[in-house]
Amino acid sequence: MKIKKVILCILSLLLIFTSLIGCSKNTSSKGEDKTVIKLGITGEDRGIWKNIKERLAKENIDLQIISFSDYNRPNLALSDGEIDANAFQTIAFFDKFKSDHNLDLVSIGYTVLAPMGIYSEKLKSLDELKNNSKVAIPNDASNGGRALILLQNAGLIKLKDGVGIAPTVKDIIENPKNLDIIELVATQIPRSIKDVDIALINNGVAVDAGYSPVKDSILIEDTKDPSTKNYFNIIAVNAKDKNNAALKKLIQTYQTEETKKLINEVYKGSSIPAF
């Protein structure tokens, strides 16, 4: 009988522990249970998340924002259960990282797009682009491939079918204007913009150089274009938690008109809503 009681006690403890896995609970000063969501981000720019935290507090959800200094830890910490969700990465980065590390993570929704744009100090429109024009693109595989896809979406080149999200200049099969595509280190492109006719600059570099992607580009990635979705930022969670009520509330609170307005006010075009 004693053995049975011990087994029953162990089973009861296991059930209690299992019920606590996922988003934890805290008790407020008023004696109310608050669900805690630990959200991982990169850097110290908490911008929009402070507002989301305030709105979730009204739903008895305590959003705790945890900053990471690199792009590797947030997904590993999520997989290890140190955090409940993260929001810092594009779909393209997420898919590759979880495949490389065999992680069982999923996206529960889109947040923003940090758009790549086409810039020029010589042209006001791509309609003015002449034959044999010089075009600068980043020389790294990720941003260079993204630039080529944007050139294709603009109708300036055609790429081989099935090249995925990282095509190279060797994958160009049609170049009707005979554009001279010059590959440069991404951070050097703004300094070289006067030496080319158009330049494709990724978001972070453009903002650091003083450009507003929405205002200063002559063409910008379109959130409605299917090829752009690979570069949407997401909120990621463990697959087992994808139906967690508190995490669903997190994405529902984020994907609102109030958040759209705030994104536009805070980031002024350096990030645009992707929902």
Rank of each mutant, 00 (worst) to 15 (best):
K158S: 07
P167C: 04
L179W: 06
M116V: 08
L159D: 10
I91N: 03
D127E: 13
V163R: 02
K158H: 01
D84Q: 15
A147P: 11
A85N: 14
D140M: 02
V135C: 08
Q89W: 09
L103R: 07
I149G: 06
S142G: 12
D100I: 11
N175T: 09
I118N: 10
I91P: 09
L179R: 01
E128A: 13
D84W: 15
L113H: 06
M116Y: 02
G164H: 05
K134I: 09
D95Q: 15
H101G: 00
M116T: 11
N153Y: 00
L150F: 06
A166Y: 13
G109N: 02
I173G: 03
G117A: 08
G117K: 01
N178D: 09
A87R: 14
L184C: 01
P138F: 03
L113I: 11
P167Q: 07
S125Q: 02
I172Q: 00
I173C: 04
I91V: 15
R146A: 08
G164T: 07
I137G: 04
G145H: 02
A114F: 10
I91T: 14
E121N: 05
I108Y: 14
V163Q: 13
G164V: 05
L105H: 11
L123G: 02
I149D: 03
N102I: 05
N102T: 00
D127A: 11
D127Y: 04
T187I: 04
K130F: 07
I157S: 07
F88P: 09
I108M: 12
I91S: 01
G81D: 10
S107M: 01
A85R: 15
V112S: 07
A85K: 14
A136T: 10
S142C: 06
K122Q: 11
D84R: 15
A154Q: 08
L184I: 03
N153V: 11
Y110C: 12
N132S: 08
L184P: 03
T168Q: 09
G155C: 15
N175Y: 07
I149C: 07
Q89S: 15
G164M: 01
G117E: 06
K124V: 05
V106K: 06
K122I: 02
E183C: 00
A154P: 01
D140E: 13
F97D: 15
K96T: 12
K98Q: 12
K177G: 08
I165F: 13
L105Y: 13
K130S: 05
A147Q: 08
V163K: 04
Y110M: 10
N102W: 03
F97N: 15
L150E: 09
I182R: 12
L113G: 02
G144I: 10
N175L: 05
